[in-house]
Simulated assay, not measured.
Amino acid sequence: MEKLAPHESLDLHEAINFKTLCLLKSKLMQGLVFDQELKALMQKDVEQSIQALTELQSSYELAPFQAPVPQNRPTPIVNGKVGKHIE
């Protein structure tokens, strides 16, 4: 298995950070949305983002330098109640 070049590793790290922020925003915004179609679309985005992050993280193992990847995800608060973890 070949290692990624340093600039590729940084690009991948930036993509993981960006996708993580997008996931967090979509998941948290679901609590503010009342339209069921939009909420379903946002849930689909969350599921696709989780899949993309899983794939990106597996590629991250090829980086010559790594930062630890957190195993837990934020717990959203929806309607004043703590929801289940995003996994």
Rank of each mutant, 00 (worst) to 15 (best):
L24D: 09
P6L: 06
P6W: 07
K81W: 01
L28K: 08
R73A: 11
L24P: 01
P6Q: 09
V78A: 03
V46S: 03
E2Y: 08
H13K: 13
P74N: 01
L41H: 15
G83N: 08
T20Y: 06
L24S: 10
M1D: 12
L62F: 13
P70S: 07
T54Q: 12
P68Y: 00
E2L: 11
N72W: 01
M1V: 14
F34Q: 06
L32T: 08
L23R: 03
D35K: 03
M42D: 05
V69A: 04
A52Y: 07
Q71Y: 02
N17L: 09
Q36P: 07
L38M: 14
L41C: 09
A67S: 11
L12K: 10
G83S: 14
L10K: 12
H13T: 15
L4S: 06
D35Q: 04
M29D: 12
Q51L: 07
K3G: 05
P74L: 02
K81A: 11
Q43W: 04
K27A: 15
F18A: 04
E2P: 13
K44S: 15
A67D: 07
L21S: 15
Q57M: 06
S49L: 01
K39E: 13
P70R: 05
L32E: 11
Q30V: 06
N72E: 12
Q51E: 11
L12Q: 10
K44E: 15
A40V: 04
E37F: 07
Q36F: 05
K3T: 10
T75L: 14
S49Q: 04
L28M: 12
S26T: 04
K27E: 15
L32H: 10
K81D: 06
L28G: 04
S26Y: 12
V78P: 06
E87H: 06
V82Q: 13
L53H: 04
I77N: 09
N79V: 05
L28V: 09
L24H: 11
K39G: 10
K84T: 13
Y60Q: 04
H13E: 09
Q66A: 08
D11F: 11
F65S: 13
N17W: 06
I86G: 03
